[in-house]
């Protein structure tokens, strides 16, 4: 039990040191811009289809599920507003981040871990290349930048899904739908939700890189890194979300 806690705090210390190292390296130029673009492409663009599909289903299902409850109160006209607020404030960012953690977090964890295991990271180190900067910094920046963009896209697609959901049982034209959505949405719905996705993206990249870069030996190490990356990244998404909700509620 005590051993478990000790390991836990050691891990926290290590990851804190890892992130400090990130902040130290990120401001030390030059940044490898080509590699950064390549990472943004493979991390962001290639996750788009997955995020789009989940977004659409999210919006559709949420609308279908909410309708009966609202209908009971005779408040079906509130459906677009309610769905859009839930999606933009909470469900869009969190579900997208979880999907992202599953796809990208595990990918980064496994990729870096296998590079570690096959001595590729050491090979970069001995050529004086600074693998931390080349591999870690670019990936963390890429996840931090890409997740917010993916969330915006997912939100938009989810709203469209919501529109389709509304139209299953009623006939609402798209202008009416979106005007009733934007009537109810305000700055404090959108802005804090976007800010927290930046932190989600950072946490997912950080944890994936940390787990991969400090992977154990052998194939087992690669598996564990991929696995822990997803588990801890997902967990951190929930923790950050909880904190974000507390902080925004202070301002409301």
């Amino acid at each position: 039990m005590i051993r478990g806690w000790r390991l836990f705090f050691e891990e926290i210390t290590k990851i804190t040191r890892f992130s400090l190292r990130f902040f130290r390296s990120v401001f030390k130029l030059p940044l490898d811009v080509n590699e950064l673009f390549r990472q943004c492409y493979s991390i962001g663009y290639k996750s788009f289809p997955l995020v789009a599909i989940t977004g659409f289903i999210m919006g559709l299902v949420l609308t279908i599920q909410s309708r009966p409850t609202l209908a009971e109160f005779g408040a079906e006209s509130w459906l677009p507003a309610m769905v859009s607020v839930s999606i933009i404030r909470e469900i869009g960012p969190v579900i997208t981040a979880l999907i992202f953690a599953g796809k990208v977090g595990s990918g980064i964890g496994a990729e870096l871990a296998s590079m570690k295991v096959t001595e590729q990271i050491e090979a970069m180190e001995v050529s004086g290349m600074n693998p931390f900067k080349y591999l870690v910094v670019t990936r963390i920046i890429a996840t931090t930048l890409m997740l917010p963009i993916l969330v915006i896209a997912a939100d938009a697609i989810a709203l469209y899904g919501g529109y389709m959901g509304v139209n299953l049982k009623a006939n609402v034209n798209i202008h009416l739908f979106f005007s009733s959505v934007f009537d109810k949405l305000c700055f404090m719905d959108i802005f804090p939700a976007l800010i927290k996705t930046v932190f989600f993206g950072f946490a997912i990249g950080l944890i994936g890189c940390f787990k991969g870069y400090h992977s154990g030996k052998g194939t087992q190490g690669v598996g564990e890194s991929a696995n822990y990356s997803v588990v801890f990244a997902s967990l951190s998404v929930f923790i950050i979300d909880m904190m974000a909700v507390q902080i925004t509620s202070l301002f409301l």
């Binding site: 590079m115 096959t118 001595e119 050491e122 090979a123």
Partner: peptide, 9 residues
Amino acid sequence: FQSAALYDS
């Protein structure tokens, strides 16, 4: 490196 350690990507 003994294992060559080529960058496999």
